[in-house]
Every structure is written in structure tokens, then in C-alpha cells.
Amino acid sequence: MTADKATIARQFIEIIPHAKALGMKVSAIEDGVAEIVMPYDDCLIGDPKTGVIHGGAVSTLMDTCSGAAVMSHPDSPAGTATINLRIDYMRAATPGQAITAHAECYHITRNVAFIRAKAFDEDRENPVATAAGAFTVEGK
């Protein structure tokens, strides 16, 4: 992937207002693989008793990271949109820890890109959630 494509994908993700509001930062992006970190923040708590981050914030992180992976794929010509995204929650994220999503765009057709993703806290052996989905491929 060219540096220009990586820069464009990174800048696009980082200017999305919702991603900015959640504190997301692209930590890696190249050739159909992306990683985005979302820091722990009290305003993202879904259960005040436990301090666990709301599942909707995890979903947004995984969706955003997956879109970044599609945009950075060498065969993806432009922007993308989510067609479907199945997320399986494996366990609650550990309160106080950042969540990192890692997504891979593993196949692209003329109109559809397919992804796999995982979200982790500091325990990289046991994912918080896994995802599989399909995204549009524009302009191919």
C-alpha cells in the first residue's frame, strides 16, 4: 500500500466526529489490516456498578476499525460503508483498561469487502469480542 493511501485512511478515521468523541486513535494501518485503540473513559461506562464499557462503544470501535481495514486494502479504491457486522461478545472488558480492535480485510470482490476483527483489553489471549462482516466497495 502506498503511504498516501495509509495517510488518507488514517486521516479519514481520525476526523469522524463519533470516533473522536470516543477517543479512538489509529495505531496501525496498512494493506487491509488496521488497529485502533479506544482509551477507557468513565463516559463510556455501560454498567455503573462494575465500570464495564458499554457494548455499543465496543461495536463502534470494531465497525470503525473494520472500515479502516477495508479502506487500506490494496484492491479497495475508495470509501466504504458497513453492509453487515456480526459481533460476538466473549466477555466484559476489564474496567480501567483501553480496548484495542484489530481488523483484517481478507477478501474483496467487485462490490463487497469481507472482514474479520477482534477487540482486546490488556489480555491479548482472550478477546472481549469478535466480529465478521461485509462492507461496500465503492468505485471499483
Rank of each mutant, 00 (worst) to 15 (best):
P39K: 07
M62R: 02
I108K: 09
V52I: 15
S72W: 02
A93V: 06
A9N: 10
L61D: 01
N111W: 06
T109W: 05
M38Y: 08
A93S: 15
T94G: 04
V58F: 01
I87E: 04
E14I: 08
I29T: 03
M24L: 14
V70M: 05
C65R: 00
D47F: 13
A69Y: 03
V37P: 06
M24A: 09
A113F: 04
D63M: 10
F12R: 10
I87S: 06
S72M: 03
K20F: 13
R91Y: 02
A101L: 07
K20C: 14
G46D: 11
N84A: 11
G67M: 08
Y89K: 00
A34P: 00
G32M: 05
I45Y: 10
M90P: 06
R110A: 14
D4Q: 15
G46S: 12
L61Y: 01
Y40Q: 07
G46I: 09
G23M: 03
D63G: 12
Y89L: 00
D88H: 07
L44M: 15
T50E: 09
I99L: 10
T64V: 03
A19L: 12
T100E: 11
K25R: 13
A57R: 06
E104K: 12
R91P: 02
T82S: 14
I36Y: 05
P17C: 02
G67H: 06
P77K: 13
I29A: 05
T64A: 01
I29W: 02
A69S: 10
M62I: 14
G46W: 07
T50S: 15
S76L: 13
P95C: 08
S59V: 03
T64Y: 00
M62Q: 02
T80A: 00
A6F: 08
S27C: 13
V70S: 04
P39M: 08
P39Y: 09
Y40M: 09
